[in-house]
Amino acid sequence: MKPISTKNHPAWQFAFALRSLREAVGTPTLARISGETGVSISSLSQALGGDRAPTWRVTLAIVETCGGDVGTWRDFWEELQRNVRKPLELPPEIGEEGRNLSAEQRREVAWPRVWERWKRTGIITPPVRAQSEFDLIMALRCLREFRSLSLRDLGRASNYAHSTFGLVLAGEKPITARFLGVFLEACRVYTQGECIAWLQLLATAVPRQKTHAEVAMMRIMGYTPRRQR
């Protein structure tokens, strides 16, 4: 990856904010940050120089050492990742290029608009009305990209192996109501309304999971389903 040379690039602006945070607490040395966090001095230097978008581990090392608010900086970092990895902005219905896009690419080009809605409203509800399990898978991929989570991040935040997340998101393993709940929690989707909206999507997209999704919705709303005799 070539270094970034423009101050208008999101990675450079992010680095400037990190440098400002560091300067606000007396500019602790890179050797000190490295010694306290285990992150290499070269990685810290690259993050502060704006040559490329840093990983969350490197960002966290600087933020924690300099007393920044981890939640706020996580939001900043996720926004940076979305900006540098943003799918091509191309309406799939327009032009020859749009007609040549695959079904997955047609969904992906709409993701930035979904991310903007989620960021603006703070409400993480599904981006589509699902007609199939494929639609739900693409919606989950959109959510994972919004949170900038790797498969290993998802695994660490749950009791599922990261390989399980990979298989489900590749369409090689079925989506269940239980999996969806774990996925949403790992992606920090917590509110009743948000979770119910995703479960409704599951019930429509995967009819065999409709009963399980309805039971999960009842539990979220505080009802205890009766056992079938």
Rank of each mutant, 00 (worst) to 15 (best):
D75Y: 12
D75V: 06
D75N: 10
F76L: 15
F76D: 09
W77R: 02
E78N: 08
E78T: 14
E79Q: 14
L80R: 08
L80Y: 02
L80M: 04
Q81T: 01
R82S: 00
N83D: 12
V84W: 10
R85Q: 10
R85L: 10
K86P: 07
K86S: 05
L88I: 14
L88V: 11
E89S: 12
E89I: 13
P91G: 08
P91E: 15
P91Q: 09
P92Q: 10
P92Y: 07
E93V: 12
E93D: 15
E93W: 12
I94H: 06
I94S: 05
E96S: 13
E97N: 07
E97S: 14
G98T: 05
R99D: 10
R99Y: 14
N100V: 03
S102N: 00
S102L: 00
A103F: 00
A103N: 02
E104H: 01
E104R: 00
E104Y: 02
Q105D: 11
Q105S: 03
R106Q: 08
R107C: 05
E108N: 02
W111V: 01
W111I: 00
P112V: 01
P112I: 03
P112K: 02
R113F: 08
V114W: 13
V114K: 01
V114M: 09
W115I: 00
W115N: 02
E116G: 06
E116C: 09
E116F: 08
E116K: 15
T121P: 10
I123C: 07
I124K: 13
I124C: 10
T125K: 11
T125L: 14
P126D: 07
P126R: 03
P127H: 04
P127A: 06
P127R: 04
R129H: 08
R129D: 12
R129V: 14
A130G: 11
Q131H: 13
S132Q: 11
S132D: 05
S132K: 07
E133P: 04
F134G: 04
F134K: 01
F134Y: 14
D135L: 03
D135V: 08
D135C: 02
D135M: 01
L136S: 09
L136Y: 12
I137G: 03
I137T: 01
I137S: 03
M138G: 04
A139H: 01
L140N: 04
L140A: 03
C142Y: 00
L143T: 00
R144D: 05
R144Q: 11
E145D: 07
E145N: 03
S148C: 03
S148T: 02
L149E: 14
L149K: 15
S150M: 05
S150A: 07
L151M: 11
L151A: 15
G155R: 08
R156V: 15
R156M: 10
A157H: 15
S158Y: 13
Y160D: 13
A161Y: 13
A161F: 12
A161C: 11
S163C: 03
T164K: 04
T164N: 11
F165I: 09
F165P: 11
